[in-house]
Computed example of a mutant assay.
Amino acid sequence: MKVLIVNNGQIDEKFVKTIVERHDTVIAVSEALKKLMDLGIMPQIAVGNFKFMPQEDVDELESKGLQFFKFPLHKDKTDVEIAVLKANEMGAYEISLTGTVGTRIDHQLASFQLLAHPDISVPLKIVEPRFEAFAVRNRIVFDTEPGNLISLIPLSDEVTDIWTDGLSQNLYGERLICGLSRGISNKAVSPTVEIAIGRGILLVIHFLKRQE
């Protein structure tokens, strides 16, 4: 099961409608539920506190098959993390997040950190109109276009024995250290890129259109 989690950030109508069709289950996080419904999209699951929604509206949506998982406003996890754990619990073999970009930089950074969640072993990535992001723990190969920007950022204290193929500045068994900016703004030079690491967790941000 491929699960799409829609967060309450910036949502591009055309993009969301396209990626919804590629997933088996859609989870709306908090007020993203209203945004999806305004686009004519009914998710299967909604996660949040939903104090913004009258109870009669909740009851009506539940009668139509929407599952609500309500949590208090103050808790130890963000609604997005709860949604990711719920998708994993449901048996998802791939989880995608969108709507992660917005005015709250703290929530945006937390979404990137979720890619390294210790309890999630299935592929987990962020997908947005202009970029995608994922964490590498071992090896990954992905499609791109020559000229696309690709940034490599350690999510652990350091990432060792990094080997890349298909980048303008390939790494050959090298190390990236958290806090240093060496891995920013590399470029693809082939239609596919391969990245392998020895130890650590490496965040890969792949810009889907050429950035100057």
Rank of each mutant, 00 (worst) to 15 (best):
L124C: 03
A92G: 12
V47Q: 03
K14C: 06
D12C: 10
K35T: 10
A83W: 07
K125Q: 15
N138R: 12
H206C: 05
Q10K: 14
V136G: 08
L167C: 04
E81K: 03
R175C: 09
V159C: 11
H206A: 03
G102A: 12
P154E: 03
I27K: 00
V193K: 01
N88A: 15
G166N: 09
I184Q: 09
Q10S: 14
T100K: 05
T192Q: 15
P54S: 09
L85W: 08
L155Y: 11
V136N: 10
V58H: 06
F131A: 00
K77S: 10
P129Q: 03
T164V: 09
I82H: 02
P129S: 06
V204L: 06
L202C: 02
D76E: 15
L152S: 11
R104N: 14
L167D: 00
D57M: 12
G200W: 08
G48K: 05
V136F: 00
L171K: 01
K35Y: 07
L114V: 07
H74A: 10
T98K: 02
R104A: 13
S156N: 09
I184R: 01
G183M: 03
Q10F: 13
G173S: 13
G200H: 07
Y93N: 15
E174Y: 12
R182M: 12
F207E: 14
M1D: 11
D24H: 14
N170L: 02
I140N: 12
K35F: 03
V47P: 06
D59R: 14
H117C: 05
A135K: 00
S30K: 04
L115C: 05
Q55S: 05
L66N: 01
L97R: 02
F142D: 03
K14F: 11
S156V: 06
F50I: 09
K14H: 13
G147R: 01
G173I: 07
T144D: 11
I82R: 06
D157Y: 11
F71Q: 04
V16D: 02
K64P: 02
I197F: 02
P146R: 07
L85A: 08
S96A: 15
Q67K: 14
L167I: 08
L180E: 15
V26G: 05
D57G: 01
I95M: 06
L33P: 04
K77I: 00
S190F: 05
I95E: 08
S121R: 13
T78S: 14
D79G: 01
H23A: 02
N148C: 14
S96L: 09
L149A: 15
L203K: 02
L36A: 05
V58W: 09
F50S: 09
F134M: 04
V84E: 03
I150W: 08
